[in-house]
Structures are given as C-alpha cells and as structure tokens.
C-alpha cells in the first residue's frame, strides 16, 4: 500500500535535475531581470558616496519636480478613491442593465498606452484642440501647465481603486447592509459602519497602487508637460532631463526616490495580500476541520 503511494508520488513529482534546472532558471531570471536593475539604481546614485548623493538634491528644480509630483498624486489619488467607492457601490449593490459593459469602460484607461493618454488631453485642451481657442481667449492654460499634468495623472490612475473594490463588494453582496438598514441605520451610517470596514484592505491596496502609478507616470505626463524646467516637470520627467544631460549621478539619485517608493509599495502590497489570505483561511477553517 505504502509502496504504491510513493510510486504515485514519484510519478507526479519532477525529477531532481529538472527541479534544479527550474529553480536555477527562476533565480537567474529574477536576479538578472528584476534585482539587478533595482541594484544599479542605488549603486549609480551612491557612486560618490553619501556626500555625492545628497549633493544631487542640492538643486531647486529637483525640489520643484518633487513638489509637482506630490501635487499631482494628491489630486489624482483622492479623486479616484472617491470615484472607486461611488462606482463600486453602484455596481456591486445594485443590478442594472449594461453593468458588465460599464465595468469594461472603467478598465479602459489600462488598455490605452501612456502616450495616447496624454495625447487625448492635448486634443481637448491644446492650442489646436477642441477647447483651445476658448481657453486661450479666457487666458486659461491646461496643456504645458500643471492642470494638464494632473488630468493626465487622473486618467492613467483612473481604474486602480475601482477595480480592487468592485469584485470584492460583488462577492460580499448586500445582506449586511440590508440588515443595518432594517435596524434603522441611515444610508450614510450603513456605508461608514458596514461597507467601508468590510473593504478597508482592498481599498488600501488600490490606493497604494494608484499612488505609485500617479507618482511614477512618465509617458502621459511627458506629452502634456512641455518640459518647462522648474514649472511643469514632474520627478520622472526631471529624471529624463538629467539623464539626457549626462548628469547620470543626479538622475539615479532622483530615480532612487521613486525606486524606494516602488519597493515600499511592493512591501505593503505583500503584507496586505498576506493578511487577506489569513482572513480567507480563517473564514474557511470551520468547514475544513469538520469531523468525518
């Protein structure tokens, strides 16, 4: 009996040489393709030690770029956070005609390449755009100015929060909300006390991904920015500028900030995923330990 079991086990297990080869291949690919690019950023940034690294930040344009990056994220993330909550309430708690089509439309910005995401706003608000003549007559500027950068950032980060919340809220259904309402809670109370606590981890997950993309976006903002140093450069655009001026130490120093943000985002994401799995396992437990 035990012999056939080990035979069976052997039959579905890969031979040792194959295991070694696959693990080796994975470590090599992850090392060369994922870790080495990350390492090179910090090594180039610290080429001249700490002093050289800090010197790279002695640049008012860099601080203006950091400021604009933070402003763009500070507008885009809350807007898309509120949108995510509103859209997922409408989609997950009600049944209506055209719902799956609406979900596809919300995901649309993911299918649009970054350069095109910027271009559509140039076509709307640029000098030759639909609203261009009216804007310039009223002395308003959107393209080649901060509003254009903010708009492009809002566009590329549009689906992040909504797409984390919608599937989760659909799965949770609306029984708890119905119970709260029938016990006399108002709509707002139900939302704050029942719905929001139920989705908080997915919400946080969506927000950190949204923020990472907002601060790191390059293609879309490159198109609408006009690259005016100290005015319409975000951090990624400032990195491009420094790099093209062969000021590679400073370019990598700026890149190290965004790389740190990326690593922090990955770390938080991994912790949240781990937590969500714990919650899921805990809810599965009673059925798996049923006495036979």
């Amino acid at each position: 009996m035990s012999a056939t079991l080990t035979d069976k086990r052997r039959a579905v297990r890969d031979p040792h040489w194959l295991r070694g080869l696959m693990i080796g291949g994975t470590l090599l690919a992850a090392g060369l393709l994922l870790l080495l690019p990350l390492a090179v950023i910090f090594i180039e940034a610290f080429r001249d030690g700490w002093r050289g690294y800090l010197e790279s930040f002695n640049d008012p344009y860099a601080w203006q770029a950091i400021r604009l990056t933070i402003i763009a994220a500070a507008v885009a993330v809350p807007l898309n956070l509120v949108f995510g909550l509103v859209a997922s309430w409408a989609i997950a708690k009600f049944d209506f005609f055209g719902k799956s089509f609406l979900i596809s439309l919300i995901d649309l910005p993911f299918a649009v390449s970054p350069v095109i995401s910027g271009l559509v706003y140039v076509l709307m608000f640029g000098l030759q755009g639909w609203l261009g003549p009216w804007l310039s007559a009223n002395n308003l500027q959107i393209i080649f100015a901060a509003p254009g950068i903010i708009l492009a950032t809002v566009f590329v980060t549009f689906p992040f929060v909504a797409r984390e919340l919608i599937p989760l809220m659909q799965e949770q259904g609306s029984e708890e909300e119905q119970a709260a309402l029938s016990l006399g809670a108002s709509g707002w109370q139900t939302f704050w006390r029942v719905t929001l606590p139920n989705v908080k981890w997915a919400l946080l997950y969506g927000v950190i991904l949204c923020n990472a993309r907002a601060m790191g976006e390059f293609g879309a903002v490159a198109v609408v920015s006009g690259h005016i140093r100290g005015k319409t450069n975000t951090l990624p655009l400032h990195i491009e500028l420094l790099y093209n001026e062969y000021n590679s130490r400073a370019a990598f120093a700026m890149a190290s900030l965004l790389a740190l943000l990326g690593v922090a985002t990955l770390a938080v994401k991994t912790i949240i995923e781990w937590r969500l799995r714990q919650v899921q396992l805990a809810s599965l437990e009673p059925s798996t330990v049923e006495p036979s």
Binding site: A30, L34, L35, P37, L38, V40, I41, P114, L209, A212, M215, G216, E217, F218, G219, P236, L237, I239, E240, Y243, S248, A251, F252, A255, L258, A259, G262, V263, T265, L266, K269
Partner: peptide, 16 residues
C-alpha cells in the same frame, strides 16, 4: 519581487 516591473516607474526602469 515578481511585481517589481509594475512598481518601478517606467522611466526609472528605462534608465536602469
């Protein structure tokens, strides 16, 4: 770290 390419801004990956 598989998601590193999602987390790193594209310009940063580009110069790296």
């Amino acid at each position: 770290i598989i998601d590193m390419p999602f987390a790193l801004p594209t310009a940063v990956s580009g110069i790296a």
